[in-house]
Amino acid sequence: MNVIALSLFDLALAALLILALAGLSHQLRIGSERQLLVAAARSTVQLLLIGLVLKLLFANADPLWVGLLATVMLAVAGREVMVRQKRRFVGAWGFAVGTLSMFVSSFSVTVLALLLVIGSDPWYAPQYAIPLLGMILGNTMNGISLGLDRLTQDAADKRQIIDSRLALGHDWRRAIADSRREAIRVGMIPIVNAMSAAGIVSLPGMMTGQILAGTPPVEAVKYQILVMFLIAAGTGFGTIVAVSLAARRLFDERQRLRLDRLRQPGA
């Protein structure tokens, strides 16, 4: 099982496809050639950088460096969740809601998997810890931003209904319960779809990569199943934590609906 190493020339061939696509986009006046080229360049630079970082990290498995990289990944994911919100919380909460819940879910699921399932030695071995955390974070990020977006949108749309329920003496939990449930459901849709379609409609990227790199298919499949379950757990728990935190934050200490704690879209 040896890997066919890719040469620079091979990658340049693939890059020609992107250039051709950009050329066509220009020709047809679609106007997305600039975005396409910038995104392609960004992904090349980012991936090369992380390749170098991982190379250094693998050679020198210091828990401090692993922790530092994990923290950077978390912060970037937290920022991503924040900027994707149409109505995010004003102030530090805008960043904290998503980041905190990703920390709670992604980190604990990853550590749990490293300690109990994979049993790598040491448990923080970067070859396992970093890719696993990356995959779980990336998916949890999607679930959380979808869930939060739905919750704040729903609360804004149903402001009068929520106020009416509060006026009837319902506590905040009851008044927001329908929106909260719906938001969590929406946050979990992508991972449920991914698990249902896995292997039939789509061959997950991690497994495909492993097979291309020469791993026996059944081993690759086993890892893929593990990763799917970890991602589902991370996304599910993360979305529940994030949506619940945000739902609480929508009400003040006198259980009033405080939409002024959200930034107005377009502001």
């Binding site: 149903k158 209904i161 009416s164 509060l166 006026a167 009837l168 003496g169 319902h170 506590d171 259980q255």
Partner: peptide, 19 residues
């Protein structure tokens, strides 16, 4: 407590809301 207050001092809004 806020819910108890709103049960005894009850607002009936001008526009009816249903869930």
């Amino acid at each position: 407590p806020a819910p108890a207050w709103r049960r005894s001092v009850a607002l009936v809004p001008a526009e009816s809301q249903w869930w």
